[in-house]
Amino acid sequence: MTPLEIAQKDSIKELLDKLPFVMPPKQARSIIDVGHNKIYEILNSGELPATKLHGKWLVNKYDLIEFILGGGMRENAS
């Protein structure tokens, strides 16, 4: 592993460690860089697992990471 790869890995780990365990859609959408309507479309479709608590969506940090690593949104990126 090159020094650059190590630095990138450490930087990503540090960023992920700072994320809260659960977050509102507004924070999740800023991380995956989608708009207001698109995040709710993703949540309602189940593409990104989330939980509703008292009528408000909550996104688990690990589900968001899996969504990103699994290529969520790539097919729509054209």
Rank of each mutant, 00 (worst) to 15 (best):
1 M>C: 10
1 M>Y: 10
3 P>G: 07
4 L>Q: 10
4 L>T: 13
5 E>H: 09
5 E>Y: 08
6 I>P: 05
7 A>V: 08
8 Q>P: 04
8 Q>G: 07
9 K>R: 10
9 K>V: 02
11 S>G: 11
11 S>A: 15
12 I>F: 02
12 I>Q: 04
13 K>G: 00
15 L>F: 14
16 L>I: 07
16 L>T: 09
17 D>N: 12
18 K>H: 12
22 V>E: 08
22 V>N: 06
22 V>K: 04
22 V>L: 03
23 M>V: 03
24 P>S: 11
24 P>L: 13
26 K>Q: 09
27 Q>E: 14
27 Q>D: 14
30 S>N: 15
30 S>G: 11
30 S>L: 12
30 S>W: 08
32 I>G: 06
32 I>E: 05
32 I>V: 07
34 V>S: 05
34 V>L: 03
35 G>P: 00
35 G>R: 02
35 G>C: 01
36 H>L: 06
36 H>W: 06
37 N>H: 05
38 K>Q: 06
38 K>M: 02
38 K>C: 00
39 I>C: 01
39 I>R: 03
41 E>R: 05
42 I>H: 00
42 I>L: 02
42 I>R: 00
44 N>Y: 03
44 N>T: 04
45 S>L: 01
46 G>A: 01
47 E>L: 09
47 E>V: 06
48 L>K: 03
49 P>V: 03
50 A>H: 06
51 T>P: 04
52 K>D: 04
52 K>W: 05
52 K>H: 09
53 L>D: 13
55 G>T: 03
56 K>E: 15
59 V>D: 13
59 V>S: 08
60 N>A: 15
60 N>F: 10
60 N>C: 11
61 K>T: 05
61 K>W: 05
62 Y>S: 12
63 D>M: 08
63 D>F: 03
64 L>P: 03
64 L>E: 02
65 I>T: 06
65 I>F: 05
66 E>N: 15
66 E>H: 14
66 E>F: 13
69 L>G: 10
70 G>Q: 09
71 G>N: 07
71 G>A: 08
71 G>R: 09
72 G>E: 06
72 G>W: 05
73 M>E: 15
73 M>D: 14
73 M>S: 12
74 R>M: 12
75 E>D: 14
76 N>H: 13
77 A>H: 12
77 A>T: 14
78 S>I: 15
